[in-house]
Design a binder for these strands. Structure first.
Length: 502
RNA sequence: GCUCCGGUGGUGUAGCCCGGCCAAUCAUACGGGACUCUCGAUUCCGUGACCCGGGUUCAAAUCCCGGCCGGAGCACCA
């Protein structure tokens, strides 16, 4: 086959493929009307958005976009104790949304809207659909397990209202009184039976301080907010599947329509194992991680620091879909997506890991060397080719006496004696027999390098890097034959880079 | 234990609602070839799956029943 012929066939085939290629996309949303869809993402800001949050952010925002609808970001921060919010984290969500390329149309802080929830609560009490319960936690559990009403269930709205007001006045201790929604104490799923809508927590809230002592539970707050925000579709993890069954009682009492729901399964990422926000926090406090942006931590800010493109993260999650089965997926898929984006943009440099200095005999003069900086843009960079160069110990270990190798774009070297570290210059033109093998290696001039540390989630690589990287501060570059890395900082002749992926 | 949900190649995913066009899609991974002065990219070829057992039907990945396996919930957490 001639070269012409080959090219023609490739061209032909490429077109065929392009036609067949289907964009990975989210499935259509049931009962979705263009322009009327309201999606929401409702995190508790007790830490920065993680990879897990990203799924919720991306999927909900994508649907809002797909149907020209609205996106509500709602902070479900109604527990100042067990799931204590972090003040800084509120803004982190906004930041990360922006980084992902989305902008919530409405931002709701549940803790600032507690008086609204009180109003609805009072209506329910008046309607006899909720009651104040003075049972101890364990006591009520007995009734729940037995499927029997607790004695307080039959109190009048007036009696309940009185207790409610005393709760608000701080006349009860924590745990002494709660407000329950009347559901069905015989419901076959015990989780549904008369659930708690409000409880007393004496704790300063990071956002609203000491304004409240009676806080709504997630189910109550979320039920009211979803109605108030006119949420049309809820997509969330299946751990919240009971919420729907619980909240529907309120919706029925008020005559509201419940949004269309969809619950997805858990995502487990091989590389991170099971890291919850609270366990990350603990590990940070213990000094195992350096912070929320430690490269080993699955937060969006850490991924950003590592040099991931938000576009890659979006594709990664969209490809996971919104199935109800749990998924266990490898970050390699994310790497592949990211590589597609970054490969074209990244400038190439030499980073020599575990550097070994060698002297090339017969190499008398310094030769200026030009190498491709970015192959897809055809730009070039320069290095000084001299008699003494660093090569990686990893490469050296593979070589034997008598073998030839080539310093990429510079010169050929024969190994005279590997034990005695004797090397000999054999020319600058590339030779066929070298080209065949894997013996073209990267290198650095002895006298014009910077120290370099590459931090990866697993380990820290030490070596030397060419001075040219300073031009790419903050960006992702490729250290040839090593990996893609983001150049983070340079101080005292030492460059710090973060390992992105191979 | 009780209540729900789910099980398609190594890993994800499409198809399942409305049985036939599915000897099952796409991606990634893996193996091999080409190309390239990177172990990256590109490109070509290949490997590889409908959890099991019954039933309904001319026909089942798709519907029904049972089993097995996995998950979630059963909180005054979100």
């Amino acid at each position: 086959m001639s070269e012409e012929e080959r090219k023609r066939l490739i061209e032909l085939y490429r077109e065929e493929r392009a036609e067949k290629k289907r964009e990975i996309a989210l499935p259509p949303l049931p009962h979705a009307e263009r322009g009327k869809v309201v999606m929401r993402f409702a995190p508790n800001p007790n830490g920065p958005p993680t990879l897990g949050s990203a799924r919720g952010m991306i999927v909900n925002a994508e649907y809002a976009e797909m149907y020209s609808g609205k996106l509500v970001l709602r902070f479900d921060d109604t527990d100042p104790r067990t799931k204590r919010p972090l003040v800084e984290a509120y803004d982190w969500y906004l930041e990360d949304f922006e980084w992902l390329g989305y902008k919530p149309d409405i931002v709701v802080y549940a803790s600032k809207r507690i008086p609204i929830y009180y109003e609805y609560m009072e209506k329910l009490i008046d309607m006899g659909k909720a009651y104040a319960c003075l049972c101890k936690r364990e006591e009520f559990k007995k009734y729940r397990d037995a499927g029997e009403n607790c004695p307080h269930r039959d109190s009048s709205p007036e009696q309940s209202m009185e207790i409610w007001e005393k709760m608000l006045d701080g006349r009860y201790e924590e745990g002494e009184a709660v407000i329950r929604i009347k559901t069905d104490m015989q419901h076959k799923d015990p989780a549904i039976r008369d659930w708690v809508a409000f409880r007393i927590i004496y704790e300063t809230h990071p956002l609203v301080g000491d304004r409240f002592i009676v806080y709504p539970t997630l189910d109550f707050e979320s039920a009211i907010e979803d109605h108030l925000n006119e949420t049309t579709h809820i997509i969330r993890g299946k751990d919240l599947i009971d919420s729907e069954r619980r909240q529907k009682y309120i919706y029925t009492y008020f005559g509201w329509g419940y949004p269309v729901t969809k619950h997805w399964g858990r995502v487990k990422i091989h590389e991170f194992g099971k890291l919850s926000t609270s366990s990350i926090k603990k590990a940070i406090d213990e000094g195992i991680f350096t912070g929320w942006d430690d490269p080993a931590v699955p937060t969006l800010r850490a991924l950003r620091r590592r040099g991931f493109e938000s576009e890659a993260i979006k594709k990664f999650f969209i490809s996971l879909g919104i199935g109800e089965n749990d998924v266990s997926v490898s970050l390699k898929n994310l790497y592949a997506e990211n590589r597609k984006i970054v490969d074209e943009r990244a400038n190439r440099y030499f980073f020599v890991e575990n550097p070994v200095l060698i002297e090339i005999e017969g190499m008398e003069e310094e030769i200026p060397v030009e190498l491709p900086l970015n192959p897809s843009k055809n730009t070039r960079r320069k290095l000084k080719g001299g008699r003494r160069v660093y090569i990686s110990g990893k490469d050296l270990d593979r070589f034997e006496t008598g073998e030839m190798f080539r310093l990429k774009e510079f010169c050929n070297v024969r190994i005279v004696d590997i034990e005695k570290m004797k090397f000999e210059f054999t020319g600058t033109e590339i030779e066929e027999d070298i080209k065949k093998g894997r013996n073209i290696i990267h290198w650095l001039p002895e006298d014009d390098v910077l120290e370099c540390r590459v931090i990866s989630p697993e380990e820290e690589y030490r070596g030397k890097v060419e001075r040219n990287v300073l031009n790419d501060m903050g960006r992702v570059v490729q250290f040839e034959r090593f990996a893609f890395c983001r150049v983070e900082s340079a101080e005292n002749n030492e460059v710090i880079a973060i390992y992105t992926h191979p």
